[in-house]
Computed example of a mutant assay.
Amino acid sequence: MQEAKLSQKDMMDLVMDVFDQQLPFNRFLGLNVHRDNFEKATITLNWQDSLMGNPYQKILHGGVTAAILDTVGGLMAMLYVAKDLDNLTAQEFNQRVGRIGTIDMRVDYLRPGKGEQFTATAQMIRKGNKVAVCRMELHNEQNTHIAFGTATYML
Rank of each mutant, 00 (worst) to 15 (best):
M16H: 11
H61V: 02
L138E: 01
Q22R: 08
D17L: 10
T89P: 13
E141T: 10
L51K: 05
D86I: 05
I103P: 00
V107C: 06
V131Q: 13
Y109C: 00
T44F: 03
V18T: 12
A151T: 12
V133W: 00
D70E: 15
G30R: 05
T144A: 06
A122E: 05
V18W: 02
Q91I: 04
M136F: 12
A82H: 08
H61M: 01
V18M: 10
R96K: 13
T102Y: 06
H61W: 12
W47A: 08
I43H: 03
G73M: 09
S7V: 11
M124H: 02
D13P: 10
M124G: 00
F38A: 13
Q142S: 11
R96D: 06
F38W: 01
G149H: 03
G62P: 00
G53W: 05
L110H: 11
H139Y: 06
L45Q: 08
M16C: 01
F25T: 12
H139G: 04
L45E: 06
I146L: 15
A41T: 03
I68G: 08
V133M: 09
Q142K: 14
T119G: 08
Q123W: 11
R106K: 09
M136Q: 11
G30M: 09
G115Q: 08
G149I: 02
L79V: 07
G98E: 11
G115A: 03
Q57V: 13
D20K: 06
